[in-house]
C-alpha cells in the first residue's frame, strides 16, 4: 500500500512538473475513448430520435430558413473576402506580417468534464487530424477555448470560462487592452486590473487581441455586462459574458492560424507546409 501511494505521488509530481508522461497518457486515453463514446450515447440517441420524429412540415421550414441564412452568409463572405484581400494589400504596403487567413476544422463535442469546477470539454478530433496543444477553438459566435491535451482520436479543450484560463482581449471601441479571466461555474469572464478611469462601459465588445501568440487576432470573446467602480479600490470590477455558447455548442471549430512564428509552426505541426510564417 505504501509503495503504491509513493508511486502515485511520484507519478503526480512527474506529471505536474514535466511532460514525460504525455505520451503514455495519450495512449491510455485511446484505450478509454470507448467509455466516453458510450457515455455520450444517451445524448446522441435523444438527438437522433428528435430528428426522426420531426415532421415533414418542420423539416421543410427549417430547410427554407437555413437556405435564406446561407444566402445571407454567402453575401457576407464575399464582402469579407474582398475586405480581407484589401486588408492584406494594405498590410503589405505597411510591411507588416499579420495575415488574416485562418483555416478551420469542424469538430464535435463528445464529452464534458463531470467536475463542475472545471470548464472543460472533450472533442472528437485528435492527433490524426493535426490537432495540437494550444490550438484555439471557436464556435459560430466567438472564442471558446484552447486545446490542452491531445490523444489519437480525441482532445480536451479548456474553455475560456475556466478559473485557470485567461485570454488577452481588446475593447473594440477604445482599443483598450486587457486580460479576461474565467470565473468557473457561472461562465463569465472577469477583466483583470481595469483602471478605475479606464474607458470601458457596459455593452462594449471584446475581441481577442492576439497578444501572447496563442489566439488569433480579432475573434469575438465577449460583451461587457457589468462595470462597477468601487471607491477606494484602484481597479474597477468588470465582468463580461462570453460570446460563444459555451454550454450549448455541439460543433466547434479548430483554428489553424498561418501567422504563427516559424519555431512554433515546426514544433507543433511537423510536416505541415507553412511557408508564409517566415516573414
Amino acid at each position: 500500500m505504501a509503495g503504491l501511494a509513493v508511486l502515485s505521488v511520484i507519478l503526480m509530481f512527474v506529471d505536474h512538473v514535466t511532460d514525460w508522461l504525455d505520451e503514455s497518457r495519450a495512449a491510455m486515453t485511446v484505450a478509454v475513448t470507448p467509455v466516453v463514446v458510450i457515455a455520450d450515447l444517451p445524448n446522441r440517441s435523444a438527438r437522433g430520435l428528435t430528428e426522426m420524429l420531426a415532421s415533414r412540415e418542420d423539416l421543410r421550414r427549417r430547410i427554407t430558413e437555413l437556405e435564406s441564412e446561407l444566402t445571407l452568409f454567402k453575401v457576407k463572405t464575399e464582402k469579407m473576402a474582398a475586405l480581407t484581400a484589401e486588408n492584406n494589400r494594405l498590410r503589405d504596403l505597411l510591411g507588416s506580417a499579420a495575415k488574416l487567413q485562418d483555416n478551420v476544422l469542424v469538430a464535435e463535442l463528445i464529452g464534458v468534464n463531470p467536475d463542475p469546477e472545471v470548464q472543460e470539454v472533450v472533442i472528437d478530433k485528435g492527433v490524426l487530424d493535426d490537432v495540437f496543444i494550444g490550438q484555439p477553438v471557436l464556435d459560430s459566435r466567438g472564442l471558446m477555448g484552447q486545446v490542452v491535451d491531445v490523444s489519437r482520436y480525441t482532445s480536451r479543450v479548456l474553455l475560456i470560462s475556466d478559473q485557470e484560463h485567461s485570454v488577452p482581449v481588446q475593447v473594440l471601441r477604445s482599443n483598450l487592452r486587457l486580460i479576461a479571466q474565467g470565473t468557473g461555474l457561472d461562465q463569465k469572464l472577469e477583466l483583470q486590473h481595469v483602471n478605475s478611469t479606464a474607458d470601458i462601459r457596459v455593452g462594449d465588445q471584446l475581441l481577442s487581441s492576439g497578444l501572447g501568440n496563442r489566439f488569433p487576432v480579432g475573434y469575438p470573446v465577449g460583451v461587457v455586462d457589468r462595470v462597477k467602480h468601487e471607491p477606494g479600490k484602484p481597479f474597477a470590477v468588470v465582468t463580461a459574458s462570453p460570446s460563444a455558447q459555451l454550454d450549448r455548442s455541439r460543433h466547434v471549430l479548430l483554428v489553424f492560424t498561418e501567422s504563427r512564428t516559424p519555431e512554433e509552426a515546426t514544433a507543433f505541426t511537423s510536416g505541415r507546409s507553412d511557408g508564409k510564417s517566415g516573414r
Binding site: 501511494a5 507519478l11 508522461l21 497518457r25 472543460e120
Partner: peptide
C-alpha cells in the same frame, strides 16, 4: 484499486496518480 484510479485519472484528465492515490487509501 490503484490501476482503476490511474484509468480514472486518464478519463477525467486529472494528474496521473491523483485518483490512484485516493483509491489506494
Amino acid at each position: 484499486a490503484w490501476a482503476t484510479g490511474l484509468i480514472v485519472d486518464v478519463l477525467l484528465g486529472s494528474l496521473l496518480g491523483q485518483h490512484a492515490l485516493a483509491y489506494v487509501i
